[in-house]
């Protein structure tokens, strides 16, 4: 038993007849930053969505912060409160202001008083540098601003782990940097992060370990330097040559 805050052991998942995750085993330590890359359809998103049970795995075990993820309900909401998630499509609540987006969960899930929640929200909004947008609505913000707001919203639950599902894939090129900067800052602050992305520059700067997935399997896992300088598998080499 190590410091591992997330443990996946022999996880298998099917969508109907199609097997999307094959014998996934993974250990993630606290404060570790992992970047998962791979071709589309390789199961990367499904993997991290299994960690907060947005998807259900059929075989194997997933343990997050000492809690086994299974069908038991009490379990799920507690785990989700510790695991923050940032989506490709931002998924901000359009009918609430940015500030309300951020305070909604602390007030209703953590039962925080409103004032305290708003202070926490403003702290996080400052962290992602959109304090002046606090009273605007998501529809009035640019893509980059929305994604940063989404990150702030996730941070307001004070999670131990942050999952990122291709956070910059839906952004216009000029807005990718502002979001990545926020993520780098987050990483430097010591957050445990699992990021699914194609942004290799970001990966090289921030990741401790790299994972390459293909056809539902973890093909290669290595320290970042080794991964880029000396990829072991041929498939990894092929993939890296295509995107770098």
């Amino acid at each position: 038993m190590s410091n591992a805050i997330i443990q996946l052991k022999d996880v298998n998942k099917w969508f109907g007849e199609f097997q999307v995750l094959k014998d996934i085993s993974l250990l993630v330590n606290q404060k570790e930053k992992i970047v998962i890359c791979g071709p589309s359809g390789s199961g990367k998103s499904t993997l991290i969505r299994c960690i907060n049970r947005l998807e259900e795995h059929q075989e194997g075990s997933i343990v997050v912060d000492g809690n086994e993820i299974s069908d038991s309900t009490k379990n799920i909401e507690k785990i989700r409160a510790e695991v923050g998630m940032v989506f490709q499509q931002f998924n901000l609540f359009p009918h609430l202001s940015i500030l309300d987006n951020c305070t909604l969960a602390p007030i209703w899930v953590k039962k925080m008083p409103k004032k305290q929640a708003e202070e926490l929200a403003m702290e996080n909004l400052t962290r992602v540098q959109i304090t002046d947008q606090a009273n605007k609505f998501p529809g009035q913000l640019s893509g980059g601003q929305q994604q940063r707001a989404a990150i702030a919203r996730a941070l307001c639950m004070e999670p131990k782990i942050m999952l990122f599902d291709e956070p910059t894939s839906a952004l216009d090129p000029e807005m990718i940097k502002e979001v990545l900067d926020v993520m780098v800052d987050l990483a430097k602050g010591g957050m445990t992060m699992i990021v699914v992305t194609h942004e290799m520059g970001f990966a090289k700067e921030v990741a401790d370990n790299m994972i390459f997935m293909d056809e539902g399997r973890i093909v290669e896992k290595a320290k970042t330097k080794d991964f880029f300088d000396n990829p072991k598998s041929d498939r990894t080499k092929l993939f890296l040559s295509q995107i770098l």
Binding site: N52, A105, V109, M157
Partner: peptide, 23 residues
């Protein structure tokens, strides 16, 4: 209502009841 809305709410720790009511 976009499917992502329910997912975002779930990932923040909302119960299905609260998700329905607030989001």
């Amino acid at each position: 209502v976009d499917k992502g809305q329910k997912e975002a709410a779930s990932s923040l720790g909302f119960t299905p009841g609260l998700t329905l009511r607030l989001v």
